[in-house]
Simulated scan of single mutants.
Amino acid sequence: MIERVETEELERRHRELAALNAIANAANRSLRLEEVLEVSVEKVLEIVGADAGCVLLIEGPSRRLSVWGVRGLSPELVERLATMPLDGEHWQREASFDVRDLWRISDSVKGIAREAGLGSCLLLPLRWESTALGILLLAGDGDRALGQWSMEFLMTVGEQLGLAVRNAQLYREVQRELAERVRAEEEIRQRHRELSALNAIAATVNRSLDLEEVLNDALDKVLEMMGLEVGAIRLLDEQGGTLDLKVHRGVDLSPQVVERISRARIAENPPLAEALATGEPWIMEDVSALPVVRLIGRRDLKSLAVIPLTSKGRVLGTMEVVSLDPREFTTAEIRLLTSIGHQIGVAIENARLYGYLERQLEQL
């Protein structure tokens, strides 16, 4: 009799160790949290003979449970579990969850599961050291005995899954940190490119104090940097009601067309009016339907950026750059163009001042 009991105990231990090894292999197959939980739940259900189950992870910031690896549970039950609040008298709003909270959470989950008509229900805590991670929910049809496994075995299953969950969470955190670091490094590289571009523009516009030369050099450099072919610079007239075309690139215009577009009335040109009124870049994704585009005969023009040219808080004119393909100007490009607009505006102010002083000297 004793030998038979011992044999049965050894067989049970052997069965449980084999089961634990199979669950560990399944849980450690991946470091992706979703895959870890999908495979783990499926393997545990297969081994313990449960009909349905899932893993409920504690989401501390949202004070909710997230549901993973769902097998055999109704969508209604999953929804109720996912919306079960972890607050009230048992949990302080600012407090973190510890292992003791798992038992209170388990009681709430068990009540919801019973209301949903689940038969035999088993809840295993998932933890890592003293940190509460979540719960493994297993459900049977009542005829199949979830109780055939020892409590030691079931708790070890919970510990194995808890460790796998924690490893996957750490992996996700590391991946997130790496992604943030990559973004930060890209931001640094982008800023370096912007500074280099601004330095190139400054070197270009400061080569001369002749206004026409400044405008031509500035537009050429901006188009080169942006990889564009079409652009123009307009300056406000003394009355401030029109923008006079000073330089343009990328379009062959007849004298008649130049005459018609050389003075743009601000009130009749929404893109120019918007940029002048706000002092901010104005972007238009498709300009092919604008009257001026039809006038110059370039239906292939697509995206437009109008950049105010500013100095000492005043708008002196605009720079317009146009792409031949649909283009979404990025935040970084708009930021760069805004800074370039300020640099060109300062150069225009300096060239005008220089011209004024030259004229004054000539009159002496």
Rank of each mutant, 00 (worst) to 15 (best):
L81K: 01
L123I: 14
L118M: 09
H90F: 15
G140Y: 01
W68E: 14
W128G: 01
L102H: 03
V55P: 01
L118A: 00
V78Y: 10
D98V: 15
E42C: 06
F153N: 05
S96Y: 15
L45D: 03
L124S: 14
G69M: 05
L86R: 13
L33C: 05
S30H: 07
T83R: 15
S150E: 15
G60N: 14
R63Y: 02
E38F: 04
R127A: 11
A139I: 02
H90M: 11
L86I: 10
P61F: 07
S66Q: 14
L126S: 02
I135D: 03
I105H: 04
D51F: 06
I58M: 11
R127M: 11
I135G: 01
E35L: 11
D87H: 13
L122F: 04
V39Y: 06
L31T: 07
R80L: 06
E34S: 08
V44G: 06
L31C: 08
V39M: 14
F97D: 08
V67C: 10
G142W: 13
E89C: 03
E42F: 13
I135V: 15
M151W: 09
V67F: 09
L56I: 10
Q92T: 14
G142H: 12
W149K: 03
G140V: 00
F153G: 06
K43Y: 09
C121N: 02
R104T: 05
P75S: 08
I135P: 00
A50K: 05
H90C: 06
L136D: 02
A116F: 01
F97L: 12
R71W: 07
W68I: 06
V36T: 12
V41L: 10
A52Y: 02
P85C: 12
W128A: 02
L138E: 13
F97N: 05
P125I: 08
S40I: 07
V48D: 00
R64E: 05
L81R: 01
L123W: 00
S150Y: 07
Q92P: 04
K43W: 09
E35C: 00
Q92D: 11
